[in-house]
Design a protein around this nucleic acid. Structure first.
Lengths: 210, 210
DNA sequence: CAATATTGGACAGTAACGCTATCTAATGTC
DNA sequence: GACATTAGATAGCGTTACTGTCCAATATTG
């Protein structure tokens, strides 16, 4: 590990010193090793952490509070990989509790989970998040059919299996970060590919005036 | 169409009068028909529009500027369905131009598009968005394989075909809104299902300490 | 060894976003 | 005629994510 000073950390990360200091204050970036009252040096792990923060903020569009929670889970060595990923997911799927989903929507979600024989925590935030999504579509007179839900689920099953599989057997130290990064940062990748597919299909079928 | 006053619109939409006035000012909600200098009435279309705005803001987590752009596209009758959906997508995939993606990543995206024989605009914002996503993963030492990209693409193809197909043949008046709503609001639904699948697979394989 | 530059640490300030509140004058309503 | 409601204009507020300034303590350079 070649140590570097604050200025170099700033240059290599492309972030202003003021911003790095801000992340330090917020506890998102661990402090460097002090070499005097007004000096400290940093290493590659700091650079890596900064890149992770920026990726979560810029690419995954997460709020800093969520980034903080996710980093805390990644840093907590007492958690299993499943728990760390769960913590990240919980943040992503967190919804406003003051306007709960309809019981109909929740029943449909539960039915989906049963059909797929998914082992989901009873209080998994995804249930409520999905139910709210269904409600929103319904309130706009565009209910989502169980059929479409099944198609989504069928498409995501193999993908999830592959993604999780690629993490199993990693060295524990990097596995958690790898799992979280993979889970969170692949979301925008998947969505963009869906948009591309939409553009392609739509160009073929909706190009004419309608 | 049964007309209603502002107070009723507020009650039925669940939004404060001040907020509705704000959307009116911003041009996101068309004005009601004036029945005097200090009176106007609204109808179901206003209620529907408010629900659409809230769904885009709350469920799809869009910024108001993006919602404005999308609504303007929906309201513009001179656009084809493909163009309206394209406008929505452009907003969703908009990235910061000041830090462009690497040429390597862009080359890989172009290669993917060629492999899938997708008809994408040369300047489609999705190309840059996807390339940036790949760069972010790479900079964290977790490059995305072409293999995974292909799997994503293979999974999204049929889904896009089905989704676009369900809009073809709709009455033009509602088709654009339907297309946009379907495109944008199904994204969180799809992501949540992916998270559920992850939780399921992960519970089975990562439950132990690692 | 003196002049200059850099750093850590504390704290105040700012820009964008999305509302929210207040005020006024003109109506409706009872 | 008293009271409530509304359109329209404008000002203010709370949150988020930084950004800038200041200071004293070192380093560095000539």
């Amino acid at each position: 590990m070649i140590p570097m000073w604050m200025s170099e950390l700033s240059q290599r990360s492309g972030l202003p010193v003021a911003t790095i200091k801000f992340y330090l204050r917020e506890g998102m970036l661990p402090p460097g090793t002090a070499t005097g009252a007004t000096r400290a040096h940093y290493d590659e792990t700091h650079l890596r952490r900064l890149r992770l923060i920026r990726a979560l903020v810029v690419v995954a569009a997460l709020r800093l509070e969520d980034v903080r929670t996710i980093l805390a889970a990644v840093d907590d060595e007492s958690l299993t990989l499943h728990e760390v990923v769960g913590a990240a997911h919980t943040r992503l799927s967190a919804t406003d509790a003051s306007s709960p989903a309809s019981s109909e929507a929740r029943a449909r979600v539960d039915a989906l989970v049963r059909r797929k024989r998914w082992r989901l925590a009873t209080d998994s935030p995804h249930r409520e998040a999905l139910a709210k999504g269904l409600d929103a579509l319904s309130s706009l007179d565009q209910p989502v059919s169980d059929d479409l839900l099944d198609e989504y689920a069928a498409a995501m099953g193999p993908i999830a299996r592959r993604e999780v599989g690629s993490v199993v057997g990693e060295a524990p130290a990097t596995a958690t970060e790898r799992a979280v990064v993979g889970t969170v940062l692949l979301e925008p990748v998947l969505l963009t590919i869906r948009r591309m597919a939409h553009e392609h299909v739509s160009a073929g079928r909706l190009g004419r005036k309608s």
